[in-house]
Simulated assay, not measured.
Amino acid sequence: MASPQTATKSRQTKPGSKPARKSARAASRSPDAISLLKADHKEVKSYFKQYEGLEDVAEKQALADKICRALTVHAQIEEEIYYPAARAAIDDDDLLDEAEVEHGSAKQLIAEIQAMTAADRLFDAKVTVLGEYIDHHVKEEEKEMFPESRASDLDLKALGAQLAERKAELMAKAH
């Protein structure tokens, strides 16, 4: 798999060209990387909160599917773009290693949820536990990793534009 830097190089355009101007405009409109990731966190947290209040099996199924899709895309953009950039910019391999392991656990639970229906006996429990995993993971990112990234020399604006572009691609495929 190409590194984020390699992927960027293959898409480089001439300064001042129409694609370069379009890309620059998109970057100026995009939130920085941390703002984008925090917005994702907030959105998914609201989904889990909504899920708690649901009784209808079809509504639970639809919302669980939405949660799984959002988390899958979020984890992928973090793993492809944000984590490699953060690993290069901050000196905290343990924190990044833990985040990767947490993603692995979440992905396993997502796969189990996706293989079930909302009528299955352990469905609600698995969605609840996934929410707890994600809550823990989000706290570590927002209290430790994000502040370290802000304090580093990471170009969070450019990284945010990359994340937004990749997220849009993946969400389009997911629908």
Score class of each variant (00 low, 15 high):
150 R>E: 00
113 I>A: 10
2 A>P: 09
134 I>E: 14
130 L>R: 06
83 Y>W: 11
19 P>G: 11
161 A>E: 10
52 E>N: 10
29 R>K: 12
43 E>K: 15
67 I>V: 09
158 A>Q: 14
44 V>T: 07
12 Q>M: 09
4 P>A: 05
124 D>H: 04
78 E>D: 08
168 A>F: 06
21 R>P: 06
119 A>K: 07
120 D>R: 05
11 R>C: 10
87 R>C: 04
159 L>Q: 00
150 R>C: 00
56 D>E: 07
147 P>N: 05
167 K>H: 13
132 E>L: 13
132 E>M: 12
73 V>L: 10
105 S>F: 15
157 K>D: 10
10 S>M: 13
107 K>G: 07
125 A>Y: 05
71 L>M: 07
174 A>D: 12
66 K>I: 03
173 K>T: 11
39 A>Q: 15
28 S>C: 07
28 S>T: 12
43 E>D: 12
102 E>Q: 10
152 S>R: 02
39 A>F: 10
143 K>P: 05
52 E>A: 14
136 H>N: 06
108 Q>E: 15
79 E>T: 10
17 S>W: 06
146 F>H: 02
37 L>Y: 04
92 D>V: 05
68 C>K: 04
121 R>E: 13
79 E>K: 05
45 K>L: 15
44 V>S: 04
174 A>M: 09
91 D>L: 00
149 S>T: 03
9 K>I: 06
155 D>T: 02
78 E>H: 02
114 Q>L: 12
9 K>T: 05
59 E>Q: 12
70 A>E: 15
28 S>A: 15
45 K>C: 11
63 L>T: 03
80 E>K: 15
127 V>A: 03
75 A>S: 11
58 A>C: 08
95 L>H: 01
11 R>V: 14
66 K>F: 06
90 I>T: 04
137 H>L: 05
1 M>F: 08
15 P>C: 10
141 E>T: 01
16 G>V: 08
165 E>L: 09
56 D>G: 00
119 A>N: 06
143 K>A: 11
165 E>Y: 13
139 K>W: 09
156 L>M: 07
165 E>K: 08
15 P>E: 14
175 H>C: 12
55 E>R: 11
60 K>V: 02
65 D>I: 07
20 A>F: 07
63 L>S: 04
6 T>A: 11
129 V>Q: 07
70 A>I: 01
5 Q>I: 12
